[in-house]
Every structure is written in structure tokens, then in C-alpha cells.
């Protein structure tokens, strides 16, 4: 019993000390001209899905949950957002070349239809982000139409 108390106390102290370390959360930015949803005409239902299930890692408008302000979960969230933005950032959509756009659209289609995205860990923390079949087909159709438009 004494050991449990000591371990708990040590853990709490470590947790408190950790809070003095930088959280390293990627910065949020206001919507700019390069943002997908400000530059292009995107169907409303697509915007809604992207916002609800993708933007927390793939845009500069992240809704950081409370635990992202607590170290060490802050570091995990920060890492996911940094990596997510690196692969695909809907806020930099307007800066992508046509080749980059096709690459990203093709990957979106693949990741979403295989169920690889949104990440299981993200869905665990945000159950509403899970895409149902209809939402998947809306995204797939959007990517197909978009690619077709580029290749026209």
C-alpha cells in the first residue's frame, strides 16, 4: 500500500515537471487563399466530411482537445499533426502542383476507401470522425471527379 502511494506521488511529480517542457503543438493559422475550402468550389457535403474527419491533422485549423495541452499527450498529438500536414495539408492545397494534387487525391481515395484513414487512434478519441459507407463514397466520387477535371 505504501509502495502504491510512493509510485503515485512520483508519477504525479513527474507529470507536473513535464508540464514545464514545451508542448510543441503545430501552430494554427486563419483560413488563407491557399486553403482548399476558400479557393475551390468544393461540394458542401465534402467540406463537412473533411472538416469533421480530416482537418484535425491535415489542415492549419486544428481543434486541439484538452489533452493536447498536457504533456506527454501533447507530444503525441503534435507529432500526428506535424506528420499529417507533411503528407497532405488542405490549407496548402492551392500551392500544390497538378502532379501533387493527383498524387494526393489518389492517396485520399485509397486511404479512405481502405479504411486506413482516419487513423484508428483518432477515431477512438473522436468516434464521430469515423466515416460511414455513404461518406466514403462521397469522398471517392469527389476525388474521381476532381482528377478527371485536372486531366480533361
Amino acid at each position: 500500500m505504501k509502495a502504491v502511494k510512493i509510485i503515485s506521488a512520483v508519477l504525479i511529480i513527474i507529470l507536473i515537471i513535464l508540464q514545464f517542457f514545451p508542448k510543441r503543438l503545430p501552430e494554427n493559422l486563419p483560413l488563407g487563399p491557399s486553403d482548399l475550402i476558400s479557393g475551390e468550389s468544393v461540394p458542401g457535403e465534402v467540406v463537412e466530411i473533411l472538416r469533421n474527419s480530416c482537418f484535425d491533422c491535415h489542415s492549419n485549423q486544428v481543434h486541439y482537445p484538452w489533452y493536447s495541452y498536457v504533456v506527454p499527450t501533447a507530444w503525441l498529438v503534435g507529432k500526428d499533426v506535424r506528420e499529417g500536414r507533411g503528407e497532405l495539408n488542405f490549407s496548402e492545397w492551392g500551392d500544390y502542383s497538378l502532379r501533387n494534387l493527383i498524387g494526393r487525391l489518389d492517396a485520399i481515395k485509397e486511404e479512405v476507401s481502405s479504411g486506413a484513414m482516419p487513423l484508428p487512434a483518432y477515431i477512438f478519441m473522436h468516434p464521430k470522425a469515423k466515416l460511414d459507407e455513404e461518406q466514403v463514397s462521397i469522398i471517392v466520387k469527389w476525388t474521381d471527379d476532381y482528377i478527371e477535371k485536372i486531366l480533361e
Binding site: 502532379r99 501533387n100 493527383i102 498524387g103 487525391l105 489518389d106 492517396a107 482528377i147 486531366l151
Partner: peptide
Amino acid sequence: SKARQIASLDAVIE
């Protein structure tokens, strides 16, 4: 398909 080819080449470059 053309789209897949471009997407693959884009990934190769990356």
C-alpha cells in the same frame, strides 16, 4: 490509368 501513373510518379519523386 493515367491518374494512377501520375500519382505513382508523384510518390516516387517524393
